[in-house]
């Protein structure tokens, strides 16, 4: 499948490497003409969400991306990507996200836990991470760490606070790719 990866800033190369490893074809999106290609899904990577918001608007990508997600394009957001999907940004998921929820870099950590629909013992890397403060009924929480929701799904849209692209565990990406494969059947 062809998967668009937002490449404005941050750790987009890491996602592309996972997609290639799983036999799929990523392409980078920096401007409108990149975006206007056929695609089966979109990944919003980690990085700085304020930087990406500014560039989404400067490049005229904000509305086109938002409209295509709302029309059903499968999307996955990690860390800053989750912030972009939340209320107050692209508003594609009915979630409220708290930025830098664990504090500064000294608060960054690794943990292992269960992610519903993905599996047990998933290594989760949190880097100046956000978490989901509240969500509407349309949203299904997928993972909870220390009482905080750190992963969720709403239809074809999934988001997580942690960084699956930084670990060797490809289950989260494969979960997303299954959503991309079946999108037309839903």
């Amino acid at each position: 499948m062809k998967i668009a990866v937002l490449a404005l800033q941050g750790a987009f190369v890491e996602h592309e490497a996972v997609l290639r490893q799983l036999g799929h074809t990523p392409f980078e999106v920096r401007k409108l003409e990149d975006w206007n290609q056929p695609k089966d899904g979109l990944i919003l990577p980690g990085g700085e969400s304020t930087t990406m918001m500014r560039l989404l608007k400067d490049e005229g990508l904000f509305e086109p991306i938002r409209q295509e997600i709302l029309a059903g394009l499968p999307v996955m957001g990690t860390c800053a990507g989750m912030i972009l999907l939340a209320k107050g940004r692209l508003e594609c998921m009915d979630i409220e996200v708290l930025r830098n929820a664990y504090g500064r870099q000294l608060g960054s950590f690794n943990t292992v836990g269960r992610v519903d629909e993905v599996g047990e013992d998933v290594l989760m890397t949190f880097i100046r991470a956000p978490y989901i403060q509240s969500y509407q009924e349309s949203v299904r929480p997928l993972a909870v760490v220390d009482g905080r929701t750190v992963a969720a799904r709403q239809g074809n849209r999934i988001a997580c606070s942690f960084h699956p692209e930084l670990t060797d565990d490809t289950r989260w990406h494969r979960y997303f790719l299954r959503i991309c494969e079946t999108k037309d059947k839903q």
Partner: peptide, 16 residues
């Protein structure tokens, strides 16, 4: 672990 997390924060700054 800490070294790894610190390298990973730098990865998040890339392209910036």
């Amino acid at each position: 672990d800490r070294q790894q997390l610190n390298r990973q924060l730098a990865q998040m700054l890339k392209g910036g």
